[in-house]
Design a protein around this nucleic acid. Structure first.
Lengths: 225, 225
DNA sequence: GCGCTGGTTCAGCGGCCGTTCAGCCGCAGC
DNA sequence: GCTGCGGCTGAACGGCCGCTGAACCAGCGC
């Protein structure tokens, strides 16, 4: 478990390092925002403790930037006083939790543990299941060596299925994530698109990747089809 | 988005209802712990706001019970005073977040939204009894290495039996949990489905997992069959 | 204007799955 | 041994779910 502490008050930073190391974390400390952002980008931390008021780049910006770059390490923000808008903004920029100073180590550690228990929604660069590959940033999908052309909607659906491969996903859930959250149309559209994916990705290759679980939803085979 | 508010102070409960409904939630209110627990069990809420100090069953117990039964709806706890141990305990019993009274609606709503954004990622672990396994998130059931195909109703029944393995469950109780709470049909349907599970899970393997307790109900062997 | 692309809607169909039912079995009490 | 009740069994049926092919529509480039 590696944690990054971004905090400019040296005494507090040292205290956090000691406290977290006592809890079994390997701790890196950054004393200003620029360093913090850089370190968070370069190393795969399991959790980040992030002060808002920082020299260099402030906490909000760091959080926002990391999220925008697809880094989803759990972030616990430290807000100065009880100004409630600080807290709202912290959560809205993508932090997972916050604490108001002063706080006790007991609470800090408990909440860090809660964050880790939840884990970060992992966003790997390339999604794979067997010989099925999908590269979100390059917008490419392929089966084995054969590149497959997908429309935007087909791509989004496949991406969602791949991110949660092995899980059953109800049509309702798929609609909420791949279509609008409050999509009001006919759920049949999911069936239509599942069919199109099957025609492009399974049928020509004699595979059977997307399973229908009648009455429950769809499931993408975790290790290829 | 359905939310359940469990709060015994009527004015606060009403305020929460108004505030959350203004944010687009469909809100149910329970005024004591017993009701709250019952409602949380019976309805699939997207989030639960839970006071700790409650008549009937207190908030810790409710939280603990729900988690033990495999209900992982995000829970936001309301702790009375700033005693930090309250908060630690809240998180340790399985709550996802907490707020100390008094709080502002802005903060409450922001944190609820953050919880919903995260979803309820604490998926229940795989349920087991001997070599009988059931994975709710993947919707797989298997005996030993053999995967067994189950219909939705069969799956739900087996899941219920597994979650409460070792306990005697009356047909009435099974009907309330696996079928609708106010199911009005023939209780014989439970027998039919128990039989179907036996045919799929016991008979081919020479096992005897689901025991009939004449006049009382059914019991799943706690440590396999 | 025309054709193409991609998203959505629609109606028909096949079969699965939930439910019901009637008859049988076996345990228990007399 | 008879009776009654609770549970077991096999079958039947009908509604709904998911699949399919096609049509419709909007946006866009030519």
């Amino acid at each position: 478990m590696r944690a990054l502490v971004v905090e400019d008050e040296r005494r507090l930073a040292a205290g956090l390092r000691n406290g977290l190391e006592a809890e079994g974390f390997a701790v890196d400390v950054a004393l200003d925002g620029t360093d913090g952002l850089w370190m968070a980008r370069e190393h795969p931390y399991d959790a980040i403790v992030l002060d808002i008021m920082l020299p260099g780049v402030n906490g909000y910006r760091i959080c926002e930037t990391l999220r925008r770059e697809g880094i989803w390490t759990p972030i616990l923000m430290l807000t100065a006083k009880g100004g409630e808008w600080d807290q709202v903004e912290a959560l809205d920029t993508g932090a997972d939790d916050y604490l108001t100073k002063p706080f006790s180590y007991a609470v800090l550690v408990a909440r860090l543990r809660a964050l880790l228990r939840r884990g970060a929604p992992q966003r790997p660069a390339v999604l794979e299941a067997g010989d099925l590959r999908l590269d979100p940033s390059a917008r490419r999908a392929s089966r084995g060596d054969v590149e497959v052309e997908l429309t935007p909607r087909e791509f989004a659906l496949l991406e969602f299925l791949l991110r949660r491969r092995g899980e059953v996903l109800s049509k309702r859930e798929i609609l909420q994530h791949v279509w609008d959250y409050d999509f009001e149309g006919d759920p049949n559209i999911v069936e239509v698109y599942v069919r199109r994916l099957r025609i492009k990705l399974d049928r020509p290759f004699g595979r059977d990747t997307i399973h229908t679980l009648r009455g429950a939803g769809y499931r993408l085979a975790a290790h290829g089809g």
